[in-house]
Every structure is written in structure tokens, then in C-alpha cells.
């Protein structure tokens, strides 16, 4: 297990990005410099892993987000209302100001018939139509996780439901936060930034640079092993897993700094290669996840 605290300035400063932004946003709301924003969280074609990941956030945590930063209007996993009453909450936002967070891809085959998220006035509502309607009207759209960003696992071969990322559905900019799941910091930091300063600076794949600018390989604690040509030949060894098919050299995100589960550990810290879950093309183009007998 890796140490939680790292004395490196690069690590310690970047680790604080999300908490600094969230605390700034909360302070600004308290001082009435900015207002709480309405937040709609749609769970489309996926596993709901991103909302679970969000609940696992720590400094900043979900409670700060839901109680002090936004009016959490709709999320089918978390809200008390159900059925038409829940959909009523969603449709009450029509024509009003809200930020839209979306997890999961959009199933497009047969007019989206394979993902119905609820019923409204007696009619089934598909993910396909809800993203069209609420995506175009939102103040900002944030794709949370790899499925919403680029199709991800939902769009993996043979993709029977015709899943696509939400950007392909919308004629507007979508801020993408890929990762399977998305780290709570990446979402909360981005949301706070949007509320404080507007759209964050993004790369050519629409990912915020504050979290997605650096290759895992460039900040990997096992990088010295790569540079010396010392490679693991099987799982469990403590050296560089390049020969096992590690995708750290093609994956841009700050996992080595932020880590997971309350910053306890991350895949490479636990002796398994990075599988590139935060990169476009995951999972098909990141396979095989493990290779043996590599020269």
C-alpha cells in the first residue's frame, strides 16, 4: 500500500485542487458571491458506478456537494421520490437554469428503446430523448465516466444497443471526465470550477487540464524502473509493468497522485497494470489487459 501523504510539492499541491475549488465555491455561496446551482444527474446506459464513486468522495465529500454547493434536483439512485413523482422533479427543470451531469452512454438502436429511464405522463422516457431534451438546454453538460464520455464499456464490441457517448448526441460542448469510474475529485473539482469561473480549460478531447494533463507514466512511482529497463514478468512484482501491457504510458489522468478509496491506493500501487480506463477507446482498444511472455 502506498503512503497517503507524499512530500513532493507537485503531488501535494495537485492533490488539493478539488478540495480548494469546492471550499472556494462553498465560501462564495455563503458570501452570496455566487448562487447555488441546480444539478441534474442522469444515469443512462451504464452500471451506476459513477454515482457510487461520487458517494465515496472524501474532502471534498458528497455531503458538502449536496448540502452546501448545489440543489441536487434529480438522481434516480439517490432521490426519495420515485415513479412519476421523481420524473416530475426532472421535468420541473424545463426552461430553468441547471447543470447536467450524465453517466452512462446513450443507447441509440431502435430509437433508444433499450434504455428507458422512467415514465412521464404515462409514456416511457428513453435515455435517447431525455439527453436530447435536457442536454441542449443545460447551462453546462458534464459527461461523468468513460461511458458518457466516449461510449466506454456500454459501447464495447459488439455494442448490441448501439451505444454512443453523449457528445455524439449533442450539438454543443460537453466537458468530459472519463474514468471507470470517474474519481469523485474530478467531478466535484470540475463542478466547483464551473460554478466559480465558468468552463475550465480543456484538452483537444474536452477533458479539464487540471486533472487530465499528465500521462500516468510520467508521474508513476515505478517510472525509475522503466528508465532502467527493470520490468515485472508477472503480477505481484514491484517493478514496472510495461511488459505486462500497462496502459499508463498512453493514459492521461492523475491517479498516481489522487488514488482511490479515500486516497488509500491505486491499481499500480496494488501491483496490477493500468488498464487505461480513463482513455478513449476503453475497453476494446486497451485490451489485452494483461500480456505474458513479452520480449
Amino acid at each position: 500500500m502506498n503512503k497517503v501523504n507524499n512530500p513532493c510539492l507537485n503531488y501535494s499541491t495537485r492533490l488539493k485542487t478539488a478540495s480548494v475549488l469546492v471550499h472556494k465555491a462553498i465560501e462564495a455561496i455563503k458570501h452570496k458571491d455566487i448562487q447555488k446551482r441546480n444539478l441534474i444527474w442522469l444515469e443512462l446506459t451504464g452500471c451506476s458506478g459513477n454515482i457510487i464513486s461520487l458517494l465515496n468522495g472524501a474532502n471534498p465529500d458528497f455531503k458538502s456537494l449536496a448540502s452546501q454547493m448545489v440543489n441536487f434536483i434529480y438522481d434516480n439512485s439517490l432521490m426519495a421520490a420515485e415513479g412519476e413523482a421523481a420524473m416530475e422533479k426532472l421535468y420541473s427543470m424545463t426552461g430553468r437554469d441547471y447543470i447536467l451531469a450524465v453517466e452512462g452512454a446513450v443507447s441509440t438502436k431502435d430509437n433508444g428503446l433499450y434504455n428507458i429511464i422512467g415514465r412521464w405522463k404515462g409514456h416511457p422516457v428513453t435515455a435517447y430523448e431525455v439527453i436530447k431534451e435536457f442536454g441542449e438546454q443545460a447551462a453546462y453538460v458534464i459527461a461523468v465516466g468513460t461511458c458518457a464520455s466516449d461510449g466506454g464499456i456500454s459501447a464495447a464490441r459488439p455494442n448490441p444497443a448501439g451505444c454512443i457517448g453523449i457528445q455524439d448526441m449533442l450539438d454543443r460542448k460537453v466537458i468530459k471526465l472519463p474514468g471507470c469510474p470517474c474519481h469523485p475529485d474530478w467531478f466535484m473539482g470540475t463542478l466547483a470550477y464551473v460554478m466559480l469561473f465558468g468552463e475550465p480549460e480543456t484538452d483537444n478531447r474536452q477533458r479539464p487540464l487540471m486533472f487530465y494533463s499528465t500521462l500516468i507514466h510520467d508521474i508513476c512511482p515505478r517510472r525509475p524502473y522503466f528508465d532502467q529497463g527493470i520490468f515485472a514478468s508477472k503480477l505481484g512484482e514491484k517493478t514496472c509493468m510495461f511488459k505486462l501491457g500497462c496502459r499508463g504510458p498512453v493514459t492521461r489522468v492523475d491517479c498516481p497522485i489522487r488514488k482511490w478509496n479515500d486516497r488509500v491506493n491505486w491499481p499500480i500501487g496494488d501491483n496490477t497494470p493500468c488498464i487505461g480506463c480513463a482513455m478513449f477507446g476503453f475497453p476494446d482498444q486497451m485490451e489485452p489487459f494483461i500480456s505474458y511472455d513479452t520480449t
Partner: peptide, 11 residues
């Protein structure tokens, strides 16, 4: 080449 981990690269 680092981008060719396990002698594969983006599929």
C-alpha cells in the same frame, strides 16, 4: 517504446 506496453497499442 512506452506506448507499446505488452507489444500492443490501442488494439
Amino acid at each position: 517504446n512506452a506506448a507499446w506496453g505488452g507489444a500492443t497499442h490501442f488494439g
